[in-house]
Design a binder for these strands. Structure first.
Lengths: 362, 362
DNA sequence: GTGAAAGCGCTAACAA
DNA sequence: TTGTTAGCGCTTTCAC
């Protein structure tokens, strides 16, 4: 392994000069620079990142805590975060907590501040206390997808207005003429402990408020999804549709359960969207690729990732070493979610059509 | 930030002793150990990973190069690799090259050896020369999903017998009684340059060999998938089915295109598996969750990840610092892939049934 | 059992 | 413009 020293020796200068050349600091003569660069190339020198981190007192990576890389939303977010991090000169260490609090804590303990300069968190699976602790220890932490802009978490964060997202979904169904619908509320929070941040609370409330505000419109039933997965949505939808066969549309607080609801409908002989409309939230890639394509409320993932990295950088610059005095807990809000109508929603059948539809079922 | 020194001062010992206590090296008196541990807890000391890495001459992370985290296979593999890495005491830095050679090279240049002790590579998107270069520079590299056990890449690797996978898919179709089928061959290799490692070559060959060996059986057409995605499979399947409406089954060299093929069939009014059987390779999670569930050849992802990490560790231990003399390029082979029949495959209709089926199409 | 000292590879004042 | 000198926080011989 080639070191700075070796390069310096080769070029007939001191390590300091080599360092200066490599990072464009301080003034260096053109001739020397030339010689140094040559030596670098010749020896195939590559700076030792750990050494540099130690000397600089900063690390070249960010840590991204995700609760479960199995949920396709996270890879998508990760991708965006990684891009953003790289433009900021950082690598991204993906810390998969696998929904396990202990694992998350371990990552935080070990990585934060020593291997990573800052921590990005996509979910509140981790108890806030741990996050606050690391923040107070001097490692900036940014929450990436806070769901309630109206209710800051007391930690720097990027918020997305998920209540609005829910409202948009409601409006979409209303616009199509649906008056009797069901809701599938995802809730995978292991650590709910009645905390103010029940995972999908805002998404639910937004939908319920808007939908209920309309004349004649009624949410016939709300079912909880055991898990925020296709399977979870499938099971919940089946139960809901069995209990309330008269609903003409289903709202799910996330795309995966919405996809599951479509499968459930298919298995029950209902055609989507003719017999049943389905709408979700997020607009993960699968939503575009499902059959029929899922109508959903798109959430600005890319933007959120970018903003989160930006915010993290600001926090780092702001608190160079010692962050005495509360540095504040800034909150950024992304642009609004937007409804993306696709093939899984349509006006409800008229009574006439419904009869026909029933006949078609075996 | 608390340092070893501070802890030492607090406990009334020297840093060396603290270090010894923390890593269970050297003999330390029970009483001192007690005091040290106490001080550690009291001060909330956490070792500085970068400093440790520098002092030890080794890093606490592995790098995982993936070509595209957007393809759900990679997150699944990543998950497995991360688990394996953690049991080995390493963090996993996920390096998403986004199918870009330059990005990949940049990661390799910067991370390998200085921030990561070893490199795991899931694809040959990176030119082998770069990988060999880093390996020769002293940072172990392991290829994770080499597709041809019979043709080692000249780099340490974990191989999966994808030729057999293809053969199993063929056998499955044969067993069901299909005699006229089509093949969708994925090929996303940007850097094909006629290299011996055409991305899905083995998967194709295995299928073709086995299927063609059967009497009366014929592969009516092979179409290339432009991209290894649902979309890619959709397009290719449409073209194939238009040109050859008589095939009773489709084989795709990967699950995503297979899923796309199912969508194409649906859009063309064909019912799967009644009018058309579809089989893929890999068994990603989506395969289980699609409607109908996809019949596919499951590949031992978890096992491959585990073996790759094990192999990496061995290489690291074997070549403590200077790896003079070819350390060899070991290859491990996972257990065999296995056919997982699900709902997307069935015996072809008899002529009689086919007629009925045609009638049902609008 | 515990301490002293050197050094991992690099950066960052400050001198020259 | 370049060199000198200290470290960054930790590990690791080797004495004591």
């Amino acid at each position: 392994m080639t070191t700075l020293n070796e390069v310096a020796a080769r070029a007939g200068v001191t390590p300091a000069t080599v360092s200066n050349v490599l990072r464009n600091r301080g003034r260096v003569g053109a001739a020397t620079r030339e010689r140094v660069l040559h030596a670098v190339k010749e020896l195939g020198y590559r700076p030792h990142l750990a050494a540099r981190a130690l000397a600089e007192g900063r690390a070249p990576t960010f840590a991204l805590m995700v609760s479960s890389i199995a949920n396709p939303f996270y890879p998508e977010f990760t991708l965006a975060a990684e891009r953003a991090a790289r433009t900021s000169g950082h690598f991204l260490i993906v810390c998969n907590t696998n929904d396990d609090q202990e694992t998350g804590r371990a990552y935080l303990e070990q990585i934060a501040g020593t291997l990573s300069e800052g921590v990005l968190v996509t979910n509140a699976e981790l108890v806030f206390d741990d996050l606050r602790a690391t923040a107070e220890r001097g490692t900036p932490v940014v929450l990436c997808m806070w769901e309630r802009p109206d209710d800051p978490p007391g930690l720097p964060c990027v918020a997305v207005d998920f209540r609005l997202a829910g409202a948009l979904a409601a409006q979409h169904l209303l616009d199509l003429g649906h008056t009797r619908v069901g809701a599938l509320v995802g809730s995978r929070s292991t650590h709910d402990d009645g905390a103010p941040f029940g995972i999908h609370g805002a998404r639910r409330d937004g939908f319920v408020e808007r939908f209920s505000a309309a004349d004649d419109a009624q949410i016939v039933a709300e079912f909880i999804c055991e898990s925020d997965t296709i399977r979870g949505g499938y099971d919940a939808a089946r139960r809901l549709l069995k209990a309330h066969p008269d609903v003409t549309a289903l709202y799910a607080t996330n795309d995966l359960p919405a996809l599951g609801a479509m499968h459930a409908a298919a298995d029950m002989g209902l055609s989507v969207p003719d017999d049943l409309s389905v709408v979700g939230i997020t607009d993960i890639q699968l939503a575009r690729e499902s059959r029929p394509a899922l109508s959903t409320v798109a959430v600005p993932t890319e933007e959120a990732a970018r903003m989160a990295v930006d915010l993290l950088r600001e926090l780092i610059d702001r608190a160079p070493r010692a962050s005495r005095g509360n540095p504040g807990t800034p909150m950024r809000v992304t642009s609004a979610p937007v409804m993306v109508p696709r093939a899984s929603t349509a006006p409800p059948r008229t009574r006439d059509q419904r009869t026909r539809s029933s006949l078609r079922k075996r």
